[in-house]
Write a protein that binds this DNA or RNA. Structure first.
Length: 642
RNA sequence: CGCGGAGUGGAGCAGCUGGAAGCUCGUCGGGCUCAUAACCCGGAGGUCAGAGGUUCAAAUCCUCUCUCCGCAACCA
């Protein structure tokens, strides 16, 4: 029995995850379940990533301790994993004490062997930016962000020597072509990071406290990614001082399932940490695509967020699992709308699969009282059916091997389709009219029941509850992997149960109307809540802003930046002021030259794509993809706004 | 010229190691009645983004152009 270690990325506990975040665990679960079915000894890990500045801030805003905050969100996340019926073997939290202890040991080991070093001799700190840079990050010896002088001693931090392991990592990627998967992601990593040469990574922070402290230097907190990535081995009982049995058995991971946005951490930093620890590298990292809301990215500000638990309450777990697993492509982002869910639910689950099981079981009951007497009277369509049904397993195997999970789902559903066709070919209701055809009729129904059994078992990685329900209706408990490889293992004479619809058809219009009504209700509630929360600063805070009217005297596009326009402003001071603004998507230079805007005149300057930006101009986020600059009329340059 | 990907019938996608354009949904017509107005068959609908090129033959290879998306940089 081969071991199979599979993981999701651990979910960040800054807020409740939406359906796009939840896609990952469902995808991983399907793979884990399939491998178990094949007889692999599977260990399936998921969990939560709970440290970091963002969480510290969120907790502060919510008026609770970071731990309290994280306990709540981690609870929600785990609940969603359970609602989605995922079969994880372990749920790790980065606040678990054993994890924190091992992370400290890992950090210490890397420090002691010189792979992590204190930055004193190469430290460059930019005071205004509160940022820390390595020698190589400096631009002409100055801060790459603001271009000012940096000082040597103001801040110390620890760095991981990435460059030392670059060659080894490149070799590994070379000799394991499927390590970074899919291929296009590999190219991104190689071309954007490896080829230009890796820069040492800052792996400690002193600007906040919510993290794992460096054991030998307590004012430093370990960088969240070092902390988070280590979960894959701490969960198994890894320790630099000697690892436990689980680790020896399951590491290296067979595949890390992660979102495409964090490929870099998993294919560059993580392997290098492992190389430095002297541990084997994961065999594969699959960066899956995203679930989009229609064509848009799901985001809270747009208000188009959809949560897994809401969907499950409305449509059922298996409907949602099936949707995610069958609709989201292998490498391209997939869409999710209520319309699409209903469409797929009706066509695949209700009409095709559900109806097949229902009509077949009903016929067995109707014509034979639930017990088939014979399966030996073969006819002309039988071989074709058997061949088609037996061909599904190899197709599913192939799809899982290449992580094309939606293709696997499609292959199984197509088998159900083939069965529906077989019913029309063999016309059981015609056979039933003449008792002389009883044997043939029994054989036809037997072939259908056996096909349904195979389909049901193959559906178990995708829709486990439904799979069990189907098997219960046909009254079969033969579910072994080998039993999928030959046709006809259900014994003649066994009886079926009652025919109950698996998925009742949805009336799209009705369901959509209901959903709209609820969404509107929620939107109203939200409006009410948000307004009282605004008055949180005093007049003295506002007075810190120096807002002034300025006229745009020149404007140019910026070569290297898609989003930036470089504005030259007359703010009444007599000196031209340069401001870079991220409005290129909505404004062309000629549209705005000569107009007047409001500029935040006392904002500290910053360098963006090589331009020193001295302030910012005010603009409104009207919608997710619509920004409008605040133009003013009839006010002279330099007018103070308050 | 930073890197990578995508543009295929109304919608969503496959095909892309060159050899008569496919799948699902929708739509139209027919069949059937065991079943959840479900199922089965058939039709209509595409100059495979555009322009060149290689080839006996290109959606599939090469070049250029246009449009979208992602990564990187970055939205002050």
């Amino acid at each position: 029995m081969n071991k199979f270690y599979i993981t999701t990325a651990i979910a960040y506990t800054s807020q409740k995850p939406h359906i796009g975040n939840s896609y990952e665990i469902v995808l991983t679960d399907a793979i884990a379940r399939f491998r178990r079915m094949q007889g692999h000894d599977v260990f399936f890990l998921t969990g939560t990533d709970e440290h970091g500045q963002k969480i510290e801030e969120k907790a502060k805003n919510a008026g609770v301790s970071p731990k309290e905050y994280v306990d709540k969100v981690a609870g929600e996340i785990r609940e969603i994993c359970d609602i989605l019926n995922t079969s994880y073997d372990k749920f790790i939290r980065t606040t678990d004490d054993y994890h924190e202890a091992v992370v400290q040991k890992i950090f210490k080991k890397l420090y002691e062997q010189g792979d992590i070093y204190k930055s004193e001799y190469s430290g460059h700190y930019c005071v205004p930016c509160e940022s820390f840079f390595t020698e190589t990050q400096l631009v002409d010896g100055k801060c790459p962000d603001c271009g000012r002088e940096v000082s040597q001693t103001s801040e110390e931090a620890y760095f991981l020597r990435l460059s030392k392991y670059q060659k080894q990592l490149e070799d590994y990627i070379e000799t394991n072509p499927d390590f970074i998967y899919p291929e296009s992601r590999k190219k991104e990593m190689v071309n954007n990071f490896l080829k230009p040469g890796l820069q040492d990574l800052c792996v400690s922070r002193t600007s906040f406290r919510w993290g794992v402290p460096v054991s030998f230097d307590e004012k430093h907190v370990i960088y969240v990614w070092i902390d988070a990535l280590s979960n894959y081995i701490t969960a198994l009982g890894y320790s630099p001082e000697g690892s436990g049995e689980l680790y020896k058995k399951y590491w290296p991971a067979d595949v890390h399932i992660i979102g495409k946005d964090i490929i870099r951490f998993h294919t560059i930093y993580w392997p290098i940490i492992l190389l430095a620890l002297g541990e084997p590298l994961p065999k594969q990292v699959y960066g899956h695509p995203w679930v989009l809301c229609g064509n848009d990215k799901m985001s809270k500000s747009t208000g188009n967020v959809i949560y897994a638990d809401d969907l499950v309450n409305r449509f059922g777990v298996d409907a949602i699992r099936y949707y995610l697993l069958s609709e989201i492509p292998f490498a391209q982002d997939g869409g999710l709308t209520y319309e699409m869910i209903i469409e797929r639910y009706n066509s695949d689950l209700a009409n095709n699969l559900g109806n097949l099981v229902n009509r077949t079981v009903a016929m067995v009951n109707k014509y034979f009282g639930g017990t088939l007497p014979c399966n030996t009277c073969e006819g002309e369509f039988d071989d074709d059916l058997k061949q088609a049904v037996l061909a599904v397993l190899p197709a599913v195997e192939k799809a899982f091997d290449s992580l094309h999970i939606c293709d696997a789902a499609e292959a199984v559903i197509n088998a159900a389709k083939r069965c529906n066709k077989y019913i029309d070919e063999t016309l059981p209701w015609v056979l039933a009219k003449d008792e002389a055809n009883n044997d043939r009729l029994s054989t036809v129904l037997y072939n259908l029941i056996e096909s349904i059994r195979i389909i049901a078992v193959l559906l178990s990685p995708f829709i486990p509850d439904t799979s069990r329900e189907i098997l219960s209706q046909i009254n079969s408990d033969i579910t072994s992997y080998d039993s999928l490889k030959c046709f006809g293992v259900i014994p003649v004479g066994s009886s079926v149960g009652e025919a109950k619809p698996l998925f009742s058809r949805l009336d799209a219009e009705k369901v959509l109307a209901e959903i709209n009504e609820e969404l509107q209700k929620k939107a109203k509630e939200r409006e009410k809540k948000e307004i009282p929360g605004i008055a949180q600063i005093g007049i003295e805070d506002f007075a810190k802003l120096d807002l002034r009217v300025a006229k745009i005297v020149d404007c140019q596009t910026v070569k290297k930046a898609k989003k930036l326009l470089q504005l030259t402003l007359d703010d009444g001071s007599g000196k031209p002021r340069t401001v870079a603004s991220g409005i290129a998507a909505w404004y062309k230079p000629e549209d705005i030259i000569g107009k007047s805007v409001i500029v935040v005149a006392n904002l500290k300057s910053a360098v963006l794509c090589g331009i020193e930006s001295q302030g910012m101009i005010l603009a409104g986020d009207c919608a997710e993809d619509d920004v409008k600059v605040v133009f003013v009329e009839n006010m002279p340059e330099g007018t103070k706004i308050r």
